[in-house]
Amino acid sequence: MKQIIGDPKANPPIYGLLPMSKSSWWDGIKKGIFPKPIKMGPNMTAWRVEDIAQLIARLGAQCTGNADA
């Protein structure tokens, strides 16, 4: 998750692809806005690279007004 949303408190700070809070990220997942995670184990959650790439493309298209993306 840190690679996706970042962690400014890390040393050195990790700059995410989609800078937002954890609560905003999980809320977006709950609402179906962001892709659902894959549970890899009791303490490990991951997301498919393809899902994150599609999310970024969709959000970028919304920002530029390109509905075809």
Score class of each variant (00 low, 15 high):
24 S>D: 02
1 M>W: 10
49 V>T: 12
45 T>R: 03
16 G>N: 08
68 D>E: 15
12 P>N: 12
24 S>I: 01
39 K>S: 07
27 D>P: 00
55 L>V: 04
4 I>L: 15
12 P>I: 05
48 R>L: 05
69 A>F: 10
10 A>P: 04
36 K>A: 14
53 A>G: 01
17 L>F: 04
36 K>V: 02
33 I>Y: 10
39 K>C: 03
38 I>T: 08
54 Q>C: 10
38 I>Y: 06
32 G>V: 00
38 I>R: 14
2 K>P: 03
34 F>W: 00
20 M>P: 09
33 I>H: 09
60 G>R: 14
28 G>W: 01
16 G>D: 08
43 N>E: 12
4 I>A: 09
2 K>W: 03
29 I>M: 02
61 A>E: 11
2 K>Q: 13
29 I>Q: 02
32 G>P: 00
22 K>P: 10
5 I>N: 12
40 M>K: 05
39 K>V: 15
10 A>F: 06
30 K>D: 04
63 C>R: 15
2 K>H: 10
34 F>T: 04
52 I>F: 06
37 P>W: 04
36 K>W: 01
37 P>Y: 06
25 W>Q: 00
13 P>S: 03
9 K>T: 08
36 K>R: 06
16 G>V: 09
33 I>Q: 07
60 G>T: 12
29 I>T: 00
8 P>D: 13
10 A>L: 06
1 M>K: 11
19 P>L: 05
46 A>N: 02
27 D>Y: 04
57 A>H: 09
64 T>Y: 10
37 P>L: 05
23 S>D: 11
61 A>L: 09
28 G>Y: 00
39 K>Q: 14
17 L>C: 07
47 W>I: 05
52 I>N: 08
50 E>V: 14
6 G>A: 12
66 N>Y: 09
2 K>C: 09
59 L>C: 03
39 K>Y: 08
42 P>A: 10
36 K>D: 10
8 P>R: 05
33 I>V: 05
6 G>L: 11
61 A>H: 13
49 V>C: 02
42 P>L: 06
59 L>Q: 13
62 Q>T: 11
11 N>I: 06
47 W>T: 06
